[in-house]
């Protein structure tokens, strides 16, 4: 029996959100409620009626054990880029010069 969570992007800022047990949306995957595939389908349908709150709700498969999504794409989506980016990723001058 596959276990799923329901995710979407928030309309106003586009950030990834997850459906919680309280029927709200959270940015934290830890807050996601776990559904059976059947219940997830119902929840996705409900979310699609919240057209001014979220965009593109869908069900995400979880690994057989644990609470991580099974596909790499969904794991990256849940936790962010796998690389340092922006000011945190600036390469030190000495190395960049290749000197």
């Amino acid at each position: 029996m596959s276990r799923q969570i329901v995710s979407a992007n928030r309309l106003t800022d586009g950030l990834v959100v997850f459906r919680t047990a309280a029927g709200t949306w959270s940015e934290r995957v830890e807050d996601a409620r776990v559904y059976t595939a059947e219940d997830a389908e119902i929840e996705v349908a409900a979310a699609s009626r919240e057209a001014t709150v979220v965009v593109g709700a869908y069900a995400v498969d979880l690994e057989e054990q644990g609470s991580a999504p099974s596909r790499l794409r969904e794991r990256i989506r849940a936790t962010g880029p796998t690389i340092a980016y922006g000011p945190a990723a600036v390469i030190t001058p000495r190395r960049a010069a290749g000197a």
Binding site: N9, T12, V16, R73, I76, G80
Partner: peptide, 28 residues
């Protein structure tokens, strides 16, 4: 109009794309 619900996401999508706005993995 999108935020207020006058435009559906399906109607808005081509309009936002022609203004360079995608919805990507993590954000717009």
């Amino acid at each position: 109009r999108r935020l207020s619900g006058d435009l559906s996401e399906e109607q808005f999508r081509p309009l936002r794309l022609m203004n360079g706005v995608y919805l990507q993995l993590h954000a717009y």
